[in-house]
Design a binder for these strands. Sequence first.
DNA 1: AGTTAGTTTAATAAGTCTATTAATAATGTG
DNA 2: CACATTATTAATAGACTTATTAAACTAACT
Lengths: 207, 207
Amino acid sequence: MDINSEKSMEQTILETAEQMFLERGFAATSTTQIAKSVGCNQALIHYYFRTKENLFNSIFESKFKLLFQRVFDTTQLENLSFTDKIKHIVETHFDILSENPKMPMLILNELSRQPEQLKILKERLHALPEKLISIMSKELETEIAAGKVKNCSFIDIMFTIVSLNLALFTMLPIAVNVAELNDIQLKFLLAHRRAENVNIVLSYLRP
Amino acid sequence: MDINSEKSMEQTILETAEQMFLERGFAATSTTQIAKSVGCNQALIHYYFRTKENLFNSIFESKFKLLFQRVFDTTQLENLSFTDKIKHIVETHFDILSENPKMPMLILNELSRQPEQLKILKERLHALPEKLISIMSKELETEIAAGKVKNCSFIDIMFTIVSLNLALFTMLPIAVNVAELNDIQLKFLLAHRRAENVNIVLSYLRP
DNA sequence: AGTTAGTTTAATAAGTCTATTAATAATGTG
DNA sequence: CACATTATTAATAGACTTATTAAACTAACT
């Protein structure tokens, strides 16, 4: 009897709902379906979270914050050259998305749908990227001045990194279907694009 | 009295529905809402298209085909150098998305939701990219052999182009909100990223 | 004017969805 | 043990959905 088998109903609902929201999105997931999947009465969902929106937001906000924190974590960057820092950022971002491949679509869909939620997140998290941006921007200037890196802004670099990594995971379900990839081929594609995305960004930085 | 003011009801429904599907997606758009927006009875939607799925698919398929054709059109590429061909492809793809900024999200959402529809489109359109791919792959080989371009596959180049352009438009609603961009700033961002995406791909190709 | 084909509407069936309420079961506490 | 709190269920209200049916309206042709 693991202590986890006594997992609270509230926690089970949260975890089940998260999977279902990731799989089908907010609109296409009903509290009835969640309850059925959890194996409890539908009213219980509303007992714990009152509204479906509440349930969604509490899941979404914590998950988003968690991922956001990891993306902007600077502790692993110390003692790395500028190029290696960039490489590390691309790879870390890629790996976080790898572990949460359905999150990009959910974020894009639900933050476009709920601009209020976006404002809340923005206010709550705006301080997080600052450290990374300040460190990298300063170092980028030095590199540019030394002629080691092409003249560009760190924001543009970030934009490029996020674009390359994000797009891969938003297109993945379609790509897998079109190319009829099996698990091994999928794994290969991911490893290949992970390396390629690093290459692309580093090529872009060459003066 | 323009002859267009006598636009058929069927056409009006198609056009209105297209806008609403683009704006809110399939699940969040009801035939009731479409009818209301068109200004007709809700049963009329079903009279012309029988099901909501039918209506959606006939809009989606024709639109998708149209865009797909433009992306893989090769007529404008003749007499251009390899580098200029790549530049032209990136810019054309970007411009097509610019004119249809909401299509990327709709495609990503609905093709993931409807794998059958994806198979139909795949069978119907698989011949279209062939010409472009064959031309470009051949030329790419020559360039690589001459040491003018880094060793890579055309599929990888395509993947990169689509990623960079697609991601911009999927992130755009969020970016505009977060950065609180006005129309002029938005226009500037788009022009800037259009040029930047070309730069990124061309940098990547440098040996 | 009368018939017909095509268009549009009103009414409604059958189902799902969110959310609430009241009743019951389980658990903890003095 | 008795009481209070918490968890869970059944039942249901009320709104909204897709889709169908039959009736009404419109325009064209004979």
